[in-house]
């Protein structure tokens, strides 16, 4: 008699994913855009400290959007303040090991 292969037990995170019907299309798009913008902001700041309008121009996005994404990177320690110019704060990438 052929034995049925025992199915691999589902990992708890897979159970959660299945219960919630996976990642929604909106969240997937949002996550991908966030990753793309983080990369673009890192690239913009690799050339030196910049203000939010300058970062926005470099990334081709409106300043309010750039503001939120830069502040999110600041919140989690990826970006730091690096001076001020004409009433705008300049932001820089946090140096490695700092």
């Amino acid at each position: 008699m052929d034995e049925q292969p025992t199915p691999r037990p589902q990992r708890p995170i897979e159970i959660l994913r299945a219960r919630h019907g996976g990642i929604s299309k909106e969240l997937k798009e949002y996550f991908n855009e966030r990753q793309r913008l983080k990369k673009a902001i890192r690239a913009a700041l690799a050339e030196g400290p910049r203000s939010v309008p300058e970062i926005a121009r470099a990334c081709g996005i409106p300043p309010p959007k750039a503001m939120w994404h830069v502040m999110a990177m600041r919140r989690y320690g990826e970006v730091v303040e690096a001076g001020e110019r004409d009433d705008y704060v300049l932001y820089a990438l946090k140096s490695k090991g700092a």
């Binding site: 203000s51 309008p53 309010p64 830069v70 009433d87 705008y88 704060v89």
Partner: peptide, 8 residues
């Protein structure tokens, strides 16, 4: 700062 562009 203001939310639109980070200006003081």
């Amino acid at each position: 700062l203001r939310p639109a562009d980070g200006k003081v």
